[in-house]
Amino acid sequence: MHTLHLHWFVPSPLAVAAEAWALTSSIELHAQRNPSSEAQFEALASGQVDAVVTAIDNVMDWNLRAGPQDLRVIAQLERTTPLTLVGRRDLAALEDLRGATLLVDAPRNGFVVALRAMLAERDITSDAYALEMVGGVKERFDALVAGRGDATLLGPPFDVMAFEAGLSRLASVQALYPEFPGQGLVVSARQLHRLRPALSSWLAELDRARQHMGADPDAARQALAREGFPAPAVEAMLSTTPVSLCPDRVGVELLITQRRKAGLPGADTTYEQLVETSVLPRG
């Protein structure tokens, strides 16, 4: 049996489905929730974990830091990551964010890049708002509900929970950027030889789960519901089932363009420099 240690923000729907359908018999998976992308990078750089499930954009920034500098996206586990910009109940539109404090995971990598790009497209420059680092999606939700900031990007199930708490929907990343890609599985290239048997087995199991989810969405719905996800979040997760585990070129290139619009370093990278597909199941 192979062993794989990883971090993620919330359990991947594909992984939940694979476990529910007993498709993971060849993998001993040690997965834990992490509080931020900074914690993910530190865990990867130190060798504490083998891989992380994270926003693909993170790799562009992480590879500029002191550390491995060889991180690669080896699979895309969601078609897209549903992201809604949620704000105080008295806010109504993106234009209301001039002078706002935006709660983020990190100031220059991850989902914040999409937020910074959408604001830049409305001539709201980076000096017109403040960014406060609070951590991953759960941490951002908690901080927003507690009144520590004015707006943040949230995904399922926290966006639904925010609306139930009376907060406002300001914008949808998917409505503005239909090709926005979902989270990827990221590893260090120099570790691929050691990890290849475990990663190949796990990705094959996730691919079988992907096919099952497409063929029997009701069973997948029940599996996700048993994990405690509310019904609206379950539907959002099912809608993100990827058509392939191969990172989408159009989506990755959108992230590069957004990084360029936001004026952030790392925008000179390419799909080929970010993505490694040799571990993906064939056929």
Rank of each mutant, 00 (worst) to 15 (best):
A15G: 14
A15E: 15
A15S: 15
V16I: 15
V16N: 10
V16W: 11
E19D: 14
E19L: 05
A20G: 15
A20I: 06
A22I: 06
T24D: 15
S26M: 07
S26V: 05
I27E: 07
I27H: 05
I27Q: 12
I27C: 15
E28D: 15
H30G: 00
A31P: 08
Q32V: 14
Q32S: 14
R33G: 06
R33S: 09
R33F: 04
P35W: 12
S36T: 07
S37D: 11
Q40C: 13
Q40F: 03
Q40P: 04
F41N: 01
E42S: 06
A43I: 01
L44W: 01
G47C: 10
V49T: 06
V49L: 04
D50Y: 03
D50C: 04
V52G: 06
V53R: 10
V53M: 09
V53D: 04
V53T: 08
I56V: 14
I56S: 10
D57C: 01
D61A: 11
W62K: 08
W62G: 08
N63S: 13
A66W: 00
G67E: 08
Q69R: 15
Q69V: 07
D70E: 07
L71R: 02
L71V: 05
L71I: 01
R72K: 13
I74G: 02
Q76S: 00
L77R: 09
R79H: 10
T80F: 11
T81F: 14
T81A: 13
L83W: 07
L83N: 08
T84E: 14
T84C: 08
L85V: 12
